[in-house]
């Protein structure tokens, strides 16, 4: 394809081709510090094609596809090209990755131990991981946590952080370096979105796994509350939060069983970012 870029994020590598220059230029700027795939060979191909040949020029509209695609993928505006590329990479991981058990979770690490946060879009896990990533934790990802079925370790997938709506202003106030932000994408299917590049240390250390230590089910916009979640409920919720649990078969079952039986889990409700940070601090310190 005419416009292309290849990059490595954690253990996975992608080549992304687009019919337009702009999305690839955005990727090149924001993924500047990410290494190229080893030997130039990528695990996945992502394509940003016009939905119809003429829609390359007239009212440009992106069809996200690649090695793996969805028949009913919604077309995206060219102005949201960066988001389309991110969704394209997520799609390949969700449908094609087999080397780890994929959990739809945000993840941060401190002292080699990992805190995982899982929940629906809007639960606050992305924002919380971004905030922790600016406060002495290593950001490991806000979309997928990768569990190694052989070792139980969690591997990083530190894509750009996808900040939504009110989280955008919150993080703009905390991150001084404007070059780490992508363009403000208004009016996407999930409202306003702005991408944030993780700190340099998160990228430099992205191939280092961590040992899972705590699992949280955050819920934003509620009065403060903490509730332990038993292993059975964890298991059920995580099978639903995993896109490849079924595809991994027995290995997935063993990996997830071991995870829920060894990692303590809490559901936390919070009305704002600061109370969430305080809750995380308390629960983390109580682990030792």
């Amino acid at each position: 394809m005419k416009h292309r870029i290849a990059l490595t994020i954690g253990p996975a590598s992608f080549r992304i081709g687009a019919a337009w220059r702009a999305p690839v230029a955005r990727l090149a700027a924001l993924y500047h510090d990410y290494p190229a795939p080893p030997g130039g060979i990528a695990d996945f191909t992502v394509r940003l094609d016009p939905v119809r040949p003429w829609r390359r020029y007239i009212r440009p509209s992106i069809h996200i596809t690649g090695d793996h695609g969805l028949a009913d993928a919604a077309p995206m505006a060219l102005a949201h090209g960066l988001l389309a590329a991110e969704m394209g990479m997520n799609l390949q991981m969700a449908l094609g990755w087999r080397r780890h058990l994929l959990l739809h979770a945000a993840c941060v690490e401190k002292d080699g131990r990992a805190l995982l946060m899982t929940g629906e879009s809007g639960s606050g896990k992305s924002t919380l991981a971004a905030m922790l990533g600016e406060r002495g934790w290593r950001f490991m990802g806000d979309e997928f946590a990768l569990l190694d079925p052989a070792t139980g370790a969690v591997h990083a997938f530190p894509r750009l952080i996808s900040l939504k709506n009110s989280a955008i202003a919150a993080m703009e106030a905390q991150v001084a370096d404007a070059a780490r932000f992508g363009p403000l994408l208004r009016g996407t299917a999930k409202g306003d979105i702005r991408h944030l590049r993780p700190r340099a240390d998160a990228i430099a250390r992205m191939d280092r796994p961590a040992t899972p230590a705590l699992l949280l089910f955050p819920r934003y916009g509620q009065p403060v509350d903490i509730r332990p979640v038993d292993p059975g409920e964890c298991f059920m919720r995580l099978t639903q939060a995993s896109t490849n649990y079924t595809a991994l078969g027995e290995a997935g079952f063993d990996c997830l069983s071991r995870f829920v039986q060894t990692i303590p889990a809490q559901a936390i409700d919070f009305p704002d970012g600061n109370s969430a940070l305080a809750l995380v601090d308390d629960l983390w310190n109580a682990l030792r």
């Binding site: 795939p37 030997g39 130039g40």
Partner: peptide, 9 residues
């Protein structure tokens, strides 16, 4: 590398 990418795709 480019040929491998093409073959795999």
């Amino acid at each position: 590398g480019a040929q491998w990418n093409a073959l795999i795709a």
